[in-house]
Amino acid sequence: MAVREVLRQVRCRRLGAVGLVVVWVLLWGSLSPIVLLGGVLVAILVIGVFPLPALEHRFHLRPLWILVLFARLLVDLVVSAVTVGWQAVRYGSRTRTGIVAVPLHVDSDLLIALTANVTSLTPGSYVLEIDRRHRVCYVHTLPLHGRSDAERQRREVWAVEERITRAVGTDEQVRVVLEARRRRERT
């Protein structure tokens, strides 16, 4: 691969490169010059070997909402571990499951990816297919007994989407998500 192309990738993904160096330093557990140099070389190598399309959307970091997102994520993780564990012990092979289609409101690779990721860590659900073009997440739900559970699942994913958007979305995206919720509440 052309050196210029690698340099362009590294320039476009400065943040990712810094992240890779940090991971490398953490792995070695020391900040000596040789480790740092190794980290920079590995970061350039990884970015050069695995080129990615640039994120086409801008994002906006809101520290307070990021904190809310993380706090909620921890709570959800505990609740979901307990729910799934209880289902395993109490119902086992009689557990009912289902796949729910959840149409999302935001139209951004980053926000959809994050929403799918966080949904997979919330109680009784993980995303098993994303239809990017139609902005639909297909969520595997456990336990699921009928239509009302599917509706509840949809509302939960939308709540995750809203928290993600408030944490890292642009003002415009936040407006879209809040508008969608107002419409839902009216009907």
């Binding site: 993780l77 571990a81 799934v84 395993a88 086992g92 499951t97 860590l121």
Partner: peptide, 25 residues
């Protein structure tokens, strides 16, 4: 609990829940 889920849940898709959540926590 995660291990029990992996053994007892009915199919692959359900087992993934057990492998993902109690295991991570």
């Amino acid at each position: 609990l995660g291990a029990i889920g992996v053994v007892r849940f009915p199919d692959t898709a359900a087992r993934l829940h057990a492998a993902a959540k109690p295991q991570t926590l």
